[in-house]
């Protein structure tokens, strides 16, 4: 049946598309943002998150 053959191709191309999208996005981010900023998350930074970034997110 042709349907299943097409489905196989669709599955391959969808996976490829999503992988390429993620790779491109990851490269774009690396070129746009400073590496130190991307790495700046801290464990247990509970209070900072609640009073800083998180509130700001809520205002968006």
């Amino acid at each position: 049946m042709v349907f299943w053959d097409i489905l196989v191709y669709v599955a391959w191309s969808l996976s490829a598309a999503m992988l390429v999208w993620m790779l491109v996005d990851a490269f774009m981010i690396s070129s746009q943002y400073n590496e130190e900023y991307l790495m700046s998350s801290r464990e247990g930074a509970e209070d900072d998150v609640v009073h800083g970034i998180h509130l700001e997110e809520g205002n968006e």
Binding site: E36, Y37, S40, S41, R42, V49, G52, I53, H54, E56
Partner: peptide, 14 residues
Amino acid sequence: KIMGSSNKPIAMLK
């Protein structure tokens, strides 16, 4: 390159 503001580290969303 975008630095982010110096006193706010990046964090995951709650």
